[in-house]
């Protein structure tokens, strides 16, 4: 079987198997799997509202997954996407609230602020890693907490003690009346264009530029990169900064698109952490991330329909979704089985 074929067949098989096991669990627990999956299906694609909301959920996953994948290609594990997303969210909303500018300036400025905030948040662990050898995993995890509590304090400060900021000006909003119209007033917004553009840009950087050549080289083999005259330390910092900017943009999707404000959070959004899973599902490639984010985002949103429409408890829904994702993530097992299977055939 050719490589390309395996790359398509494996995830499809994995999803099917995940669905089967999920069905068995539903059946054992006394629920009708057909009804359950029907509810899931309708929750994702049942009507235009659900489609819109699914896309809305997928949007930040695209960027968060891209952020993790990009750093990973340079051999860095950016667990700080969550924190970078939170500061990006805040920065975007702050620009959106405080300034009143024409949209052509205001929206790009708010997006840029989010990207820069995320980039700065990733710059710190990047520099520590490159020049002092401090493990980026530890630093990024800790930076997540700093991000969470610092933004909470800033939000309260900004809104005179209230738990949420004012709404952003319309000139900084990603809202789309067109999308609202065709999706029965879902919260789907123009951010999806930005996310897809980011996928293209990152793909371009990785595949077509000398920067991508260097970053991947550093990720594959630090020693050879150094031998070749690349500045390994600089590349580590650059990779973290770009990854952080993507994470910050993911935050802007929530701040400028979905919500239009930022509220004090008692805990993490989870989008950043799910970004790790999205990236793994997509084999750390930009196009793969589209697949991963679509699967993750739609399951996550569509599952919300299962308790109400099929009477399946929320806890069980979480288990089923987790199992489907688990099977996809362990896709390499299928790859191995497939290879073994096809090898045996060839020998005979």
């Amino acid at each position: 079987m050719s490589n390309r074929m395996t790359n398509i067949v494996v995830p499809v098989l994995a999803v099917i198997l995940g669905l089967i096991v999920g069905a068995i669990i539903m059946a054992i627990s006394g629920y009708n799997p057909v009804v359950g999956y029907q509810a899931l299906w309708e929750g994702i694609l049942g009507d235009s509202y659900n489609i819109g909301e699914s896309v809305r959920t997928i949007t930040p996953y695209l960027l968060a997954g891209l952020a993790v994948a990009f750093a990973f290609r340079t051999g860095l594990f950016n667990i700080g996407v969550e924190g970078q997303l939170i500061v990006g969210w805040f920065a975007a909303v702050w620009i959106g609230v405080v300034f009143d500018l024409p949209m052509i300036v205001h929206l790009p400025l708010a997006l840029l602020a989010a990207a820069i905030a995320g980039a700065i948040w990733a710059f710190v662990p990047g520099v520590l890693k490159a020049y002092l050898g401090v493990n980026e995993v530890v630093v990024t995890i800790m930076m997540n907490y700093v991000a969470l509590h610092v933004t909470n304090a800033l939000i309260k400060n900004m809104s005179d003690g209230s738990d949420s900021t004012e709404r952003i000006h319309e000139s900084a909003s990603l809202k789309s009346s067109f999308f609202e119209q065709i999706t029965d007033i879902s919260r789907m917004h123009n951010g999806i264009f930005i996310a897809l553009l980011a996928v293209f840009v990152i793909w371009f950087i990785l595949q077509k530029t000398t920067l991508g050549y260097e970053l991947k080289a550093v990720g594959f083999n630090r020693h050879a990169s150094e031998y070749a005259g690349m500045n390994v330390k600089k590349n580590i910092v650059v990779s973290m900064v770009i990854s952080g900017a993507l994470a910050g943009l993911a935050g802007a999707m929530e701040g400028l698109g979905t919500f239009g404000y930022v509220a004090v959070k008692s805990g993490f959004t989870g989008i950043g952490f799910d970004g790790i899973a999205v990236s793994v599902l997509g084999a750390n490639s930009p196009l793969g991330v589209v697949f991963g984010a679509t699967l993750f985002g739609s399951l996550k949103y569509g599952a919300g329909n299962m308790p109400s429409a099929a009477g399946i408890p929320e806890e069980l829904v979480s288990v089923i979704i987790a199992i489907i994702i688990f099977f996809v993530a362990s896709g390499y097992i299928f790859k191995l089985l497939l290879e073994k299977f096809s090898k045996k055939k060839e020998v005979k």
């Binding site: 080289a217 594959f220 083999n221 020693h223 050879a224 990169s225 031998y227």
Partner: peptide, 13 residues
């Protein structure tokens, strides 16, 4: 280089 895998090549390229 004396170690072609460590220094000489990016094996995954």
């Amino acid at each position: 280089p004396q170690d072609r895998h460590k220094h000489g090549l990016i094996l995954n390229y």
